[in-house]
Amino acid sequence: MTVDTSTPAGTSTAPATDVLSVQNVSAAYGPYRALFDVSFRVPEGGVVALVGSNGAGKSTIARTVTGLVTATSGRVVFAGQDVTQLPAFKIARLGMAHVVEGRGVFSTLTVEENLTLAFRQRAGRAKLKENLERAYTAFPILGERRRQVGGTLSGGQQRLLSLAKVLVVPSRVLVADELSLGLAPVVVDQVYEGLREINGNGTALVVVEQQVHRVLELATWAVVLNHGRVAYEGEPSGASREMEALMSRREEALATGAEEAEKEAERGAEKSGNPERVAGHVAGGPQTPGA
């Protein structure tokens, strides 16, 4: 994969500063609360892994950061600017890229139109041709199918297309949500290779994953979520231990039937919302398998 090697705009600041910081953020889908007081930071050029079990709130964080979901309290600071209340398109224009979970391409637009839409906004009209060429060189399969509409691509090709949208024109932060879900292991390898490469060029990454091992190899920092709260934050090596501990605790709770008690306690603590129900509804509501 060849990627633009020019430095993304605004990386002149010292590498130690945070390009993105999430401060005490809570978020909800309508009446269902999904995040409780979550904080973490992404240093310039760093790779943060967000891991946790199904419905822990990983995707919600990704969406809150990029503005698809607006936080109900707390702050999101991106590139030195408070973006908490900004609409997603304004955050995107500041240099945020987000590869959404599942299908992230327009099924009625052709491959070329999908790319054009992204590049015209990110890199300007003048560089459109050049960027398209670069995308087709990096992903030859997309070049072959440039006139085909997105909906007729296979799942893997759609994923490649949504990656091409963000890999060719580098951004300051890339949020990648469940990139490996439903992909064959061999394709997942390619995807991670691409992530490593743009990170090498200065883009900070926030990687949301359920497959813990792969992402923890790449990450410089890890955040483990449980029931919409941060259960662990620190070195990636500690994260897998924490995940295992969470698993076994749940298993024990199930065995002893203590989970009910735990939930009852939680419900008492959070009067306005029941995180358990939130997780179920949002992440995997009847319509879509999610997060």
Binding site: L68, F89, A118, Q121
Partner: peptide, 25 residues
């Protein structure tokens, strides 16, 4: 036109189009 492309994209998903920096609404 660019606007036309944005319209066709926004019809499909006003959310997704925002991630490309386009004001879907």
């Amino acid at each position: 036109t660019a606007l036309g492309l944005q319209m066709r994209a926004a019809v499909e998903s006003r959310r997704l189009v925002q991630l490309d920096g386009v004001d879907g609404n």
